[in-house]
Design a protein around this nucleic acid. Structure first.
Lengths: 206, 206
DNA sequence: CACCTACTACTGCATCTTGCAGTATCAATA
DNA sequence: TATTGATACTGCAAGATGCAGTAGTAGGTG
């Protein structure tokens, strides 16, 4: 059982789903906490059935069959046990930052493009979560009794997106001061920044 | 060539390294932008050699051999080409948020423990990057001419860590208002939060 | 001087995960 | 009637991780 298995098991605990529904529900609801590929999401419920944590049966719609999955009591026990285990540390991959670290291979224009791309990726997610909150306000939550959890979760997302967008603006201003990407080293500005970071101050507030 | 391959190639461009040094340098410097396992980091330079992007030779220290890798001109060309490709969107896995989303399986104490664990994980990283900035101030950067890049990168980290820590405090206050984790749904507080999020306001500022 | 520990320096293997291609049905619209 | 887009998956190759295992070296202790 991986964390992904428990994630699927938790969704399965809400109600029975077909593989297709489960996969797409997982992509929608877990996208910002635990993003997993469609392929994996299709495989997980099969594993749960093998372990006795879920049951499956085929449903017919005309000429097509769908696999319906349902959680078992053993599955619910497994979920409760998971609650007691240690939470894994966050894992964040940001290719834009990787490219920033090695920006001396390209021009400042290249680096600006990287920031533009990051901004547009974050912007999309940002917009769609703001929209989602609009639908919650109109009673659009699929499991209304769980709204308090979804909304607290959403505050995290919005905070992150806003922070990243603020940082992008800050980084753009900084890079605009650079004559080039290479060999600047410890400039006066960089030293001021380093000093404030070493005192654990937020340089964006200055 | 994956993004991880280019990451290793970029580090190889700084100077020749042994597999061991390369692996550990990559873990230190990429931990917050592109975290990869030791195992992968050992495999990547071999792939680079196969592709002609690096050369390798054995060095002897007594009875032990070490593999030294060096970038080739073809490798440098590959790096330049990479600069022109689209940056991948960020990918963030936060198990603590997954557990928050399904917190109705456990108690508010369980949820508080999850937040404590997140805080301690983030806190460790936060501390170590503040310390790192202290060493930069004392000329401790291994490639001084690249300090401007490392420091701008560090501003991102510190901003993220501070945001997450602020959010943890906010979430703790919110959860303390909950009589339980289950079936609260759209409470008055949650509705106020949802409303401010739907207007793209930061609820933490209120 | 032998012993122990911690670090150096990797490799193999099972398992997890992704991306892509492929297959086929169904419903709505033009 | 044809076509598009959504439904409903599966197989396979390749990327990535975790863990165990192997073995040499340097430094300090008793």
């Amino acid at each position: 059982m991986t964390t992904s298995s428990y994630a699927i098991l938790a969704i399965l605990d809400l109600k029975p789903w077909t593989g297709y529904e489960l996969t797409h529900q997982a992509q929608r609801s877990l996208r910002y906490a635990w993003p997993k590929s469609e392929r994996l999401l299709y495989s997980e419920p099969k594993k749960l059935v093998e372990l006795g944590y879920a049951t499956t049966h085929k449903e017919q719609t005309g000429n097509r069959t769908r696999n319906v999955y349902e959680i078992t009591d053993t599955g619910r026990d497994a979920l409760s046990e998971w609650t007691g285990t240690r939470t894994q540390p966050p894992h964040m991959e940001v290719e834009a930052l990787l490219r920033l670290l090695f920006a001396d291979h390209g021009s400042t224009e290249d680096l600006h493009r990287v920031l533009d791309e990051l901004q547009s990726d974050i912007g999309e997610h940002h917009e769609s979560i703001v929209e989602l909150m609009g639908t919650y306000l109109n009673g659009g939550h699929p499991f209304p009794e769980r709204t308090h959890l979804s909304v607290l979760f959403a505050t995290f997302q919005i905070e992150m997106f806003k922070s990243i967008e603020r940082w992008i603006d800050f980084a753009r201003d900084e890079i605009d001061q650079w004559p080039d990407t290479e060999n600047l080293g410890m400039t006066q500005r960089t030293e001021a920044l380093t000093r404030s970071l070493a005192h654990d101050e937020s340089p964006l507030d200055i």
